[in-house]
Design a protein around this nucleic acid. Structure first.
Lengths: 133, 133
DNA sequence: CGGTATCCTAGAGGATACTG
DNA sequence: CAGTATCCTCTAGGATACCG
């Protein structure tokens, strides 16, 4: 899956462009966005893009996340079926997290967003600095 | 701009894939994400993808948003340079909001996200319903 | 019409301590 | 190591009322 360049989107969920109802009100976007646009979910999914990671590895990868938030975020992602959890019966315990097939469909978007953030970060910061009165 | 399909991203900001430091710590993503991943920003940008809209039109387009939140969200988007504000000296007053050139670079991603949300909404909801104990 | 100005509350999320 | 369990703070965001 890749992003259409500006013009060719089939369904957007937004209620415009010729009044096309698109089978769906914009509620779907809000619904999914509410799950994904928290402080950490996208970062965690992004961290898992290269393959499975252990809890501790994720903690280092996702800089600044607290143990509690990592636990909660992972729990939600697992519930939503975006990430799978595999616990190995060893001592010390080992638990690996990995994006599911569904999760993999989101990864390119996360990467695109990350690229966008890095590319335009300076410009945004400059605007911020300039526009504040 | 379009999203690379799974493999070809130049910079991601995530600190992996051969330990490539990517000129930048992951802080950029968090920084930009913190601005954009609030409850309404992406919805507002998405609503503006088809051209300029007035305040009142946005209020209808972005279902569920309060007047206060629309005001604040627009103010932030304008500050960041993603959206421009044009006030016409008429009575009754007319104010139009429009995505800037910078904002336009974000629009495809918002559309992609919206498409993803709509496409996978049911699957996510099914997982949610199934995984809760 | 397009906003401000206040007030108020739920819950996101941090810090710390403890556990199988 | 990979989590729970508590406690506590802070602020995003809703409701309501008013204004140029």
């Amino acid at each position: 899956m890749y992003v259409s360049r500006t013009g060719g989107s089939a369904v957007t969920g937004f209620t415009r462009t010729g009044g096309c109802p698109s089978t769906d009100d914009g509620g779907a976007i809000r619904e999914v966005l509410d799950r994904i646009s928290d402080k950490w979910s996208l970062l965690v999914v992004g961290a898992l893009r290269g393959g499975p990671l252990r809890f501790g590895e994720l903690e280092k990868e996702v800089t600044g996340i607290s143990q509690r938030m990592l636990t909660l975020t992972l729990k939600h992602l697992v519930e939503d079926g975006l990430v799978s959890r595999t616990a190995y019966a060893e001592v010390p315990p080992r638990v690996e997290y990995e994006v599911t097939e569904l999760g993999k469909t989101l990864v390119p978007l996360v990467i695109a967003l990350a690229d966008w953030a890095i590319t335009h970060r300076d410009e945004i910061n400059a605007n911020r600095a300039g526009n504040q009165h």
